[in-house]
């Protein structure tokens, strides 16, 4: 049975889902050019490239017209995902999520700086090991004087637990600080207050 899994962009398959199945015999030259030459059927489970039909004589396929910059293209573009993460605006109103853009870096006054992630989030994470028995707060992307940041964060973390000493680790090479225990919210709040 000639059948193929359509691996093209999803929106094309959604356009075509309601249209009739085309097999080689039914092809007429007046088929709208929007239909691709792929045989469109329900995807086969456990299929491989071997289950695709072999290429037949090119004249058996419907005629395809190549159009550069068609006017409807803007509607397709609306559906496409941006290829890179967009740059957020510099100033935003208060958002329901509480997200704020990072402040600008001032090389004169900033001893250290915590970079945002690729997706513009504060890089503070909770790492769980031993089935959640060991919890470690991880701060990534620290640039500049990492030891100064560790000193400042230590004050905040220890203040949050009535001055009890907290174990920490600084990895200067990879720009990471870890605190033993779950202090994600405390650290995140402090860093956001500092504008990072």
């Amino acid at each position: 049975m000639a059948c193929s899994v359509f691996r093209g962009p999803r929106f094309i398959s959604s356009i075509l889902r309601s249209s009739r199945t085309i097999s080689g015999a039914e092809i007429t030259p007046k088929i709208p050019a929007i239909i691709t030459t792929t045989t469109l059927q329900q995807p086969l489970r456990h299929s491989s490239f071997r289950s695709s039909p072999l290429v037949r004589d090119l004249q058996e396929y419907p005629e395809v017209e190549i159009v550069r910059n068609p006017p409807e293209w803007k509607y397709v573009e609306r559906l496409l995902r941006p290829q890179t993460v967009p740059i957020p605006p510099k100033k935003v109103e208060t958002l329901p999520s509480g997200w704020k853009p990072q402040r600008t870096y001032d090389p004169k006054s900033d001893k250290y700086f915590v970079r945002r992630t690729k997706n513009h989030m504060v890089p503070v994470y909770l790492m769980k090991t031993y089935r959640g028995m060991r919890q470690v707060t991880l701060i990534r992307y620290v640039l500049g004087d990492i030891w100064a940041l560790e000193k400042d964060l230590r004050k905040v973390v220890e203040a949050s637990q009535d001055g009890k000493v907290c174990a920490s680790r600084v990895n200067e090479m990879s720009g990471q600080i870890t605190f033993h225990g779950d202090y994600v919210d405390v650290v995140k709040k402090y860093l956001e207050e500092q504008g990072f």
């Binding site: 093209g8 962009p9 094309i12 050019a33 929007i34 691709t36 395809v64 017209e65 190549i66 159009v67 550069r68 910059n69 068609p70 293209w73 397709v76 573009e77 496409l80």
Partner: peptide, 11 residues
Amino acid sequence: MLVAAVRNSLR
């Protein structure tokens, strides 16, 4: 047509 246009626009 659309496939070519998609490819073009991705470029």
